[in-house]
Amino acid sequence: MSTQPPLIEAENLSVKYSNGDLALEDVTFTIDSSTFLAVIGPNGSGKSTLLKTMLGLLKPNEGSIKVLGYDAKRAYKTIRHLVRYVPQRDQIEHTVPMKVKDIVLMGRLLKKPPPRFSTTKDSECAKAALHRVGLDELWNQPFPELSGGQRQRVLVARALAGEGPVMMLDEPMSGADHDSQVRIVEALQEYYNENQVNIIMVTHDLNPIHMVVKDVLMLNRTVMGVGHPCAIMDLDLVKQVYGPTAKIVELDGHKYCITHDSGIDRHDH
């Protein structure tokens, strides 16, 4: 057993939306480090809220959540120093003429104090990260002119280029074409295997990353299940979370969940 603090430790956590509705209620769970964690659940189940609360972007209404032993309410500055984050795609504006390299370099320069000059090492890390998502040739291209899938790959590269023991990704595959989704999963899997890093991915569809993740947290305003991917795929549980039309299919000894939501591109607000 390691003496390291757990990656996430939530105790009786409740968080409200700005309109006063509860987004998360009485959430208690522990996830050990290091892991590749998928946070799943239907739309509006509080997945993104959980990420934002871990980052101190939203404040708990009750209870607490700790990331690597640091309380998100008090020590959010330390947590942000440890984290690299890929926000939901609708958070990214395309009003600034940035090149792909500028976006990837952001992952490193954001952690520096102003004037945030980039060194040769920063460029090398950024190039290596862009290589991981298979977009080397776009280094000098304008970011706003890329396709949705390419943009998502660049944003994942931005996180890969950075440093810090925790990567958080909020629906990184939403709006991405199939090829881009595959590249993103492969890049994350490869990076996870080669580095001492924790990956937390919020997704509405577990199936594309079923074989890659180590732990799954299933939310529906509160914790519905925590465990290994196949352990979570229990018919009664998924019907309870996704409604009576949800099904479990078995393929090559693994269980997958089919819901009315599978493969459909939607996300929480």
Partner: peptide
């Protein structure tokens, strides 16, 4: 900083 705020305010905050 002004460019980063314009492109990705949430991500910039999350990175510290």
């Amino acid at each position: 900083e002004f460019v980063y705020v314009s492109i990705d305010m949430e991500g910039s905050t999350a990175h510290g």
